[in-house]
Computed example of a mutant assay.
Amino acid sequence: MIRKLILFTPLMALSMLTSCSEPDEKSGSNKSKSISVRYLVIKEDTFNTTYTTNGNILPFEEITVRSEITGRVQSIHFKEGQHIKKGQLIISLDARELEADLEKTMVLLRQSKIDLDRRKSLLESKAISQEEFDQFSNRHEELLATKSQLTARMDAYQVRAPFDGTVGLRYISEGAMVSVGDIFTNIAVQNPLKIEFAIPEKYAQVVSVGDRLRFNVRNLSDTLEALIYAKDSRIQQDSRALRVRAQFDNSDGRITPGGFASIEYQLQVHDKAILIPTDAIISQNDGEYVIRINGGISQKVKISTTERTSTSALVSSGLQKNDTIALTGLLYLRDGIPVDLQEK
């Protein structure tokens, strides 16, 4: 058996050492891999800021008619549910005693006028003194004041409607004794109706008299419109909201006051709005962010939003038209990551 002996010279050893120490370019490569994402190119669009809330449907005017005096109900001049006119007599109380006092005063007043005229002639002829004439004059003035007082009291015995409206249920009967504050009935204006609701403080400056709103009521399929005619002069401190009233034409009588209205009020129209999907927003403790893609590289950008729907957000700062943002891969993207834009 022949054995071969291989001799290593110093030159061969140096050559092998050098060969082992050369780096492998393929195995040592640290090139970052790109991430494929779906994306959105920002375009300007129209966005309507719509506020939804509930409101109360109320009579445009209403009053609870109460007794101002103690007395007996003599006559009732209305039927429940009847439409009445302003000034129409609705309740008469027994005023016979007061009428007698007034008639007595009128008799005394007529006699006082005759006596006063006679004393005036005597004064001119200096048959009586000025002091005596003044006594008769003062007596006459007292009777005039008594007449005015009794006449004013007589108005309380004749209860009249303060405005046109519909009478509600009555709570008294003829012949019943009533005291001060007892309720006779109520009167309400059912056409037009008013809708009262509240707007948050941040929208207070946007509300304008003359704006229209849409609303729905229970058991009525139609969507109705009302016109804002008034808003409060101040924001309520407890709710931080502004109270607003709208007027609705109820000439057909299809809505009964006292119910609720589901309201949609379009506050603003943004003609050149920057809208992005809410899923593209990264919410953190210090604000909201999106991933903007510029030249195939990701960049985390802070944004501000003002309004939201269930799917979109209105961006007020941080993005502009034609910016490209990532819609997917948000958990893996940060500044400086290569991105492949995935076609939809």
Rank of each mutant, 00 (worst) to 15 (best):
D271G: 07
Y332Q: 13
P23Y: 04
L275Y: 11
L341N: 11
V207G: 11
L89H: 14
D115E: 15
A13M: 09
S298E: 09
M177V: 07
E132Y: 00
L193V: 00
K321H: 10
P338R: 03
Q149K: 15
A13I: 03
K43A: 10
D101A: 12
V178L: 05
V217Y: 00
P192A: 01
E264Q: 14
P338A: 07
V65Q: 12
F47D: 05
D24K: 00
N138R: 13
V207N: 07
R245L: 09
R308E: 10
L143S: 04
I84Y: 10
D222K: 12
H83A: 07
I325A: 09
I90G: 05
I6R: 12
Q236W: 05
N54R: 09
Y51Q: 05
T53N: 00
L327N: 14
N219E: 10
F248Q: 11
N138V: 00
G295T: 01
S316A: 08
D164W: 08
D249R: 06
A273T: 06
D164F: 04
T53L: 01
I235C: 10
L116S: 05
T324A: 03
I282W: 01
G258P: 11
R254I: 08
K85D: 11
E61A: 15
R118T: 05
N56E: 08
R118M: 11
S304F: 02
Q299V: 00
D286I: 02
A156L: 07
V217T: 13
T278R: 15
K104M: 01
F60V: 02
D279E: 14
R118C: 04
T185E: 06
L169I: 07
F47G: 04
F248S: 06
Q299D: 04
D323Y: 10
Q299C: 07
E99D: 04
P59D: 04
L7C: 07
D115I: 03
L7G: 05
Q149T: 08
V217E: 00
T311Q: 14
R243C: 02
D249M: 02
S75A: 12
S15C: 05
H270P: 08
L267F: 06
P10N: 02
Q320I: 00
G87L: 05
T185S: 12
R254D: 08
L98I: 09
